[in-house]
Amino acid sequence: MLGRTASSLFWMSRYVERAENMARLLEVGYRISLMPRAIEGHRDEWRSTLTTAACEASYFAKHKDITTTEIIHHLLFDDDNPSSVRSCLKTARNNGRAVRTALTRDVWEVLNGTWNEFVLVRPESITSERLPGFLDWIEQRAMLFRGALLGTMLRHDTYFFSQLGTFIERADNTARILDVKYYILLPKPSDVGSDVDIQQWATVLRSVSAHRAYRWFYRDSTYRPWLVAEFLILREEMPRSLTFCYQWITRALDGLGEVYKQRYACQDEAVDIYGRLKLGNMEDIFQSGLHEFLQDFMLSNNQLAADVGQTYNFP
């Protein structure tokens, strides 16, 4: 396989995952902006949405103030924002198009169909009433894409490179969400769960679709910051946790190792990160600092992505 093909597969999946995460972030931001006490707080909430999405710079390059309409437009439709859903879907499709021959028809049809439908949507038609439905649609298309990958692709190098893209992006996204909100998760003496905090923790869980799962998993009706953090970092049962992502990343790299009959340093690197997550416990993480832990994780995750690219000759 061409190094460029591997790279396109990787980025194709990364961008679909990013589009889905963007839709989730928007969903949460929008929900909060609707809440009764949000009048004052919603600007902060939108600002933290921008930070989480790493779109602050691109947003403020064009807009002075934070307004719901402009944020939604910037994160969904703005061509100048490389992480807008539109840009993500376009880049994902262009990557898929460049390696059309490596994809099954089903995977390609999801990518192509999603883009074709997306461009028909006029941004001004996405009013408040239509926004939730539209975000749902984006998430569903991303899920359909992953389903098509899982259900139709040979377990060969093409499949493994696309899985790497999905889970490296997802790990980055989960870590980023936690990091932006880390201060509200920090155990404080006054940690009695004020209304505001509970709402914030719910937000964190919701932005990774885990608020229901949390209740089932911990059999607990209140959100406890310690557990929220544990759920999203260490619990391998949770499909958006860092540990879970690394379970899949190491699997994909092992798969490549088998296909190519060759073990590379990046495989050990991933196993190492995975091992540290598996052995980790929240006490230590909070001791040494949640923020530091997450920053450190994101760095290693990025480094791994770069090393994978170098190992497999991404252009």
Partner: peptide, 22 residues
């Protein structure tokens, strides 16, 4: 057959090669 762009191919030591993952 592989679908290549120019940057995927290179000349080395008198032959043409494509850059693969291996």
């Amino acid at each position: 057959v592989e679908l290549c762009e120019g940057s995927d191919l290179f000349v080395d030591n008198g032959y043409l090669y494509m850059r693969t993952t291996q």
